[in-house]
Structures are given as structure tokens and as C-alpha cells.
Design a protein around this nucleic acid. Structure first.
Length: 417
RNA sequence: GUGAGUGUAGCCAAGUGGUCUAAGGCGCCAGGUUGUGGCCCUGGAGAUCGAGGGUUCGAAUCCCUUCACUCACCCCA
């Protein structure tokens, strides 16, 4: 093989497209149901945008970004996530002057330099919804409802909804301090990864997969117990709204997220009992991000979901996507004169909005019919010498094998029945 | 970045040092008489056995390197 797709990337082949179109269609429809409008940002942005928003010390920024210098000497990065570009666009286009919150969604390729694995790629696709300029916990409830609704609309079953609140910049420091205190005495029992987490990113101690660490994490202080009165009230109200909506959420005290910009609400949707790399959607509030990027303080939240993982789970659950439309008509011909007629006929049917695949070359009728069969068309239209003379055409119903002679002028009407 | 496994035609796959100028199946193409598909029968095309190097009289089969894939860790959608 001389060339192959770069590591961690893949071609989305025709036979996969039904899933992709279906998901895109559901994403757009869900957006419309909740009043979100599409925004397409560039594939690459100024590197600083991601460094600032995602967090200088996060794994994404320190070791996973596709960053390069362009010919003008600017540091450019292929987007490793979708929220920051939307926020940048919000600021750049003065969307604070629109009625708030501004509700946007995207479907975009995402790039991260990682070791590929099940459900993890170097280029993958996410869609996401962002509501910028609202702090009402009812908005959190609506966003989570929208995520839940999306998944049920694509017929994914047995999902779990995990929820947590990690506080704001006022109350989180005291929680992190409590967490460090708790872990400080137990450092010796932790796995090597957690030893370094203790120093670099204490929140991540909570979701270590090591069994010994999990037992320690189970008894660790909970962020929800350290919320300031405002955050506590917000979280309480959110849970009330979720109950009102009938969403089966579970508070997971160990749910934290890997991007620095999250505040207060964080949530994830996972397949029940789904092992590793299984998170289908994740998101939360990022009340400080717009300000961090140079705007006025603007509360916001959103979530993103991975399309490949959704398709993986659809297949696992044997959910099929609606079939993509294909041309219903195949035109076969016999001889040069009939071929001319076939060329004209195909064009005329297509102008009449009927999809047509026309035979090519000078293959036997048998070969042409075999092709029609393989294409799965509903009708084969056959033109031969005799039909030319009489100005008719043979229409064969491929499923029933019934066929009849139809005058050329009546063909379109016949096919539309 | 770390660890384990795998790599034979478009797909599935037999073969673990000579009988491999590589089986079989699916798919594809073509025939089974003169203008007709799906079943059946027959035939055909398609593989430098992931790539490079080495061991050997001889390698798809052994060794090394490399690339890719899969799975797990890290991290994330």
C-alpha cells in the first residue's frame, strides 16, 4: 500500500454515510426544536485561543494539539475542541448585542494527537450546543434535556446521565484544598499516576480507574459539599428542574472534566455499563470563559458529543439508520441508436427529478440487467431496436418481474405512480 | 508517551521452513446460444503473503527493524 490515511484518521465510506446523514439530520432537528442556530467556525484558530480556554496545563494543550507555524509566522492550531471557537465567534461578532442567551450549535471535525483506540481518533467529529449569556439553572436543565432528547431521538437505549457541580472560582479553591488535605495523608497508597495528579490536577484524582485509588476516592470530600451558597442553590434548582423534566440523572460526586473552563454544572452521558472510552457526550457550565477570552462576564454552558462513538453504539445496539435515497430507475439499451435515445431519456427523467442510472458501454442486456439488480433499482427501462421503431420503451418492475411496453411520452408518469 | 496482541487479494480466511508459480468462501466480471437481473452451474480477473533487512541450499512460515491496525493505560467525545 503506497498511501494510507494518516494514523488515527479514517475514510467515511459510502456504506457508512447513512449513519452520518441520520445523525446530522437529528442534530439539526434537535437544534431547531430548542432554538439553536448553526455556526461553522474555521478548522484552525490562533493557538492562544485554545491555550487560554482549555487550560495551559491540560493534557490537550500540553501534548495533544496539532500546532504549527504558518508561512506568515503565526502559531496555528487545528481545533482540539469546539467550545472555544464558538465563544471567539460570539465575541468577534458582538453577539452580546443579541437577545441573550445566544444559542448556537456546530458539527465539526476535531483534532487531537493521541494514540488511536476504540472510540478515539486523531481526527474525529463532534457536534455541540452552546448557550451563551444565561445563568438560569433552568437553562442548564434545558441543555441537559436537549442532550437526552437527542439520544432518544436516534434510538440509543440504556444510557446513563451523570451530574455533578464543581463550584465556581469562589468556592472551588476551598474544595481543592480539602481534597489535597484528604489525599496528603494517603499519598503512599496511590498509584504513580495519582501521585502526580495530586500535584498537578487534584480534581482528576477522583476518576482514576485504579481499584485502590477508587476506594480512596469514594471516601474523598465531595465538591457538592463545598459549594458556596449561590452555587449550592444553583445546583439544587438544576436538580429540581431535571426532576420536573423526568430525566433519570444520577449525581456522581467523582465526575470532573478535563478542560479547565468548566464551572458549576458538569454532566456526561454514557452507555450503561459501557467500558472505556465510552462517554458519548459531555459538557457543563463555563461561566468564566467569555471573560477569560476578553469579553464581559458572561455565564454560559454547553455540551459536545462524539459522532463516531454514537455510531459505534448504534451498531452495538443494532439500530439501523434510515436508508439514503438512491436512483429508482436503471436504463438499459441495445445498439448504438438505442443508446442515443437512452442518453436523451436519462437526461429528461433527471430534469423531471427522477434519479436515473444509465448503462454505459456496449454490454449484453444480461450484464445490464445484472447491474440493475446489483444497484437495487425499482425499475429497469429497456430500449431496443423494436422500441425505437414504435416509440415505446419497456418498463420492468424489478421486484415483481412484471414488465410492460410504455409509450415514450408516458414513461415519466408511469414511473411516478 | 507506556504495555499487550495482530498484519495472507475489496472482505472473511487456510497455510507455522521445501509438494505455495499461496486453498477455500463472499464480492466482482463473463458465459450457460439469438433482447432481460435475483437461484443454480461453469469460467475469469484480482496477492510483490504490511514494508525493509537478515538467517538458510530454500521463508508467507525463523530473527531484527519499521509502519499500520486492534486492545488497555494516560486523557477525552
Amino acid at each position: 500500500m503506497l498511501y494510507q490515511a494518516p494514523r488515527g484518521t479514517s475514510d467515511i465510506l459510502p456504506q457508512e454515510q447513512a449513519y452520518w446523514r441520520h445523525i446530522e439530520q437529528r442534530v439539526a432537528h434537535t437544534a431547531q426544536l430548542y432554538g439553536y442556530e448553526r455556526l461553522d467556525a474555521p478548522v484552525f484558530e490562533d493557538t492562544k485561543l485554545f491555550a487560554r480556554s482549555v487550560g495551559e496545563d491540560t493534557d490537550i494543550v500540553t501534548k495533544e494539539m496539532y500546532t504549527f507555524e504558518d508561512r506568515g509566522g503565526n502559531s496555528i492550531t487545528l481545533r482540539p475542541e469546539g467550545t472555544a471557537p464558538v465563544c471567539r465567534a460570539y465575541l468577534e461578532h458582538g453577539m452580546k448585542n443579541l437577545p441573550q442567551p445566544v444559542k448556537l450549535y456546530y458539527i465539526a471535525s476535531i483534532f487531537r494527537y493521541e494514540r488511536p483506540q476504540a472510540g478515539r481518533y486523531r481526527q474525529h467529529y463532534q457536534f455541540g450546543y452552546e448557550a451563551i449569556g444565561g445563568d438560569d439553572p433552568a437553562l442548564d436543565g434545558e441543555v441537559i434535556d436537549m442532550a437526552w432528547q437527542f439520544f432518544s431521538s436516534v434510538k440509543l437505549r440504556r444510557l446513563s446521565l451523570q451530574l455533578n457541580s464543581i463550584g465556581c472560582k469562589k468556592c472551588r479553591p476551598s474544595y481543592v484544598a480539602a481534597l489535597k488535605d484528604y489525599y496528603a495523608g494517603r499519598a503512599g497508597e496511590l498509584c504513580p499516576d495519582c501521585q502526580s495528579r495530586l500535584k498537578r490536577n487534584p480534581l482528576r484524582l477522583l476518576d482514576c480507574k485504579n481499584e485502590a485509588c477508587q476506594q480512596i476516592a469514594d471516601r474523598a470530600p465531595k465538591s457538592a459539599d463545598y459549594l458556596c451558597p449561590e452555587c449550592a442553590e444553583h445546583f439544587k434548582q438544576l436538580k429540581r428542574y431535571l426532576e420536573l423534566l423526568g430525566l433519570p440523572f444520577a449525581v456522581n460526586n467523582r465526575l470532573v472534566r478535563g478542560l479547565d473552563y468548566y464551572t458549576r454544572t458538569v454532566f456526561e452521558i454514557q452507555p450503561e455499563g459501557g467500558g472505556t472510552q465510552s462517554t458519548l457526550a459531555g459538557g457543563g457550565r463555563y461561566d468564566d470563559l467569555i471573560e477569560e477570552l476578553g469579553g464581559k462576564p458572561t455565564p454560559a454552558l454547553g455540551f459536545a458529543a462524539g459522532i463516531e462513538r454514537i455510531i459505534l453504539n448504534l451498531k452495538k445496539q443494532k439500530v439501523e439508520a434510515p436508508l439514503l435515497p438512491r436512483p429508482p430507475v436503471f436504463i438499459a439499451y441495445l445498439g448504438e441508436a438505442a443508446k442515443n435515445e437512452a442518453v436523451k431519456l436519462a437526461a429528461s427523467l433527471r430534469r423531471g427529478d427522477i434519479g436515473v442510472i444509465k448503462a454505459l458501454g456496449d454490454k449484453s442486456l444480461k450484464a445490464q440487467m445484472r447491474q440493475a439488480n446489483n444497484l437495487g433499482v425499482s425499475y429497469a427501462v429497456i430500449i431496443g431496436e423494436e422500441e425505437l421503431k414504435s416509440g415505446t420503451v419497456i418498463v420492468r418492475d424489478m421486484a415483481s418481474a412484471e414488465q410492460k411496453s410504455v409509450p415514450l411520452g408516458e414513461l415519466q408518469g408511469e414511473l411516478l405512480q
